[in-house]
């Protein structure tokens, strides 16, 4: 009897306690963060690249861009932070496509875990990824003269707005990531969308001097509302000029609204695209 049992040790099953959504997601976050620790170069996009942007704009273009009622470096920092947050949708999309492509998602799906944990884990780790970028940005900003001037509550509110907006755009990333087959395709697509989205806005230059039609687009760009909201909450610049479009007059409320609109549009699209991809 003992002999038989020894011979069969490997089919004597251990106790399996399938994890909850929270625990499974946390495990997947641990795995994704381990990737970042192993390959710190994954963070280049939100660290070195963003710092380079700050320095380029602050010192190369800064002198040529006149901002009324503020110094350009203070004006610039919120814009760069918003850009960093917007790019988290590209990060989530590339990560998801890579896992789909390499069969890691299949491996996860063959396990007794809630399937949504793959998406939840990916979203959380992407938000952490972008937050590291925002942190680096903040520290760089402090070095070159950026300050939070309106008190702690408003300061924190601005960071929460950034996170909410990033979270909303993550669904766009999941949607794109589920639809596309290769990381290269995702990268090409997302950057084509993200660059105009973050540049045709008040992020790097004031909108007042743009030609009227471009100014209208820029001021209705959700990225502009969020940037304006951060500037006002941190005290980094004057309120929007009186002739600016309505969203810039109510930037905090509009940023929150855009975030929820994005979630309402992209979350269902993302979940159904991921499901469809997961059925085949």
């Amino acid at each position: 009897m003992t002999a038989v049992q020894t011979a069969r040790t490997s089919v004597t099953r251990p106790p399996i306690h399938p994890p909850s959504l929270l625990r499974a997601s946390a495990t997947i976050v641990w795995r994704n963060l381990l990737h970042i620790r192993r390959m710190p170069e994954m963070l280049l996009d939100v660290t070195v690249q963003s710092v380079m942007f700050v320095l380029l704009f602050a010192y190369v273009f800064g002198g040529a861009i006149a901002v009324i009622g503020s110094n350009y470096r203070e004006f610039l920092l919120p814009g760069i932070m918003v850009q960093t947050m917007v790019f988290s949708s590209a990060i989530v999309a590339m990560g998801l496509t890579s896992d789909l492509q390499k069969g890691i998602v299949d491996r996860f799906k063959s396990l007794p875990i809630p399937r949504s944990s793959v998406l939840v884990g990916r979203s959380i780790s992407s938000l952490i990824h972008s937050s590291i970028g925002v942190l680096v940005m903040g520290l760089t900003g402090l070095l070159i003269g950026w300050r939070i001037r309106n008190g702690v509550v408003d300061g924190i509110l601005a960071f929460l707005l950034l996170l909410l907006f990033g979270f909303a755009l993550i669904w766009l990333g999941i949607w794109v990531g589920s639809l596309m087959r290769t990381v290269e395709a995702v990268q090409g697509f997302m950057f084509t969308v993200m660059f105009p989205l973050t540049f045709v806005a008040n992020t790097f230059a004031p909108t007042e001097t743009m030609t009227p039609w471009l100014r209208t687009i820029a001021e209705w760009n959700p990225v502009s509302a969020l940037t304006q909201a951060c500037r006002e909450l941190w005290g980094n610049g004057p309120p929007a000029p009186a002739d600016a479009a309505w969203p810039l007059q109510n930037p905090v409320m509009v940023s929150v609204a855009w975030s929820f609109i994005f979630i309402a549009i992209f979350a269902p699209l993302a979940v159904s695209a991921f499901r469809r991809r997961s059925r085949d």
Binding site: P14, A24, R31, D106
Partner: peptide, 29 residues
């Protein structure tokens, strides 16, 4: 258990971490 067509191990993780990851997802002690 499933061993897929392409070896679906996590390349960035060590061998041991791969097992740790899957063990945690099974909820094994």
């Amino acid at each position: 258990g499933l061993t897929g067509q392409a070896a679906t191990v996590d390349e960035i993780l060590t061998g041991r971490e791969n097992l740790k990851l899957i063990g945690a997802l099974y909820g094994l002690p």
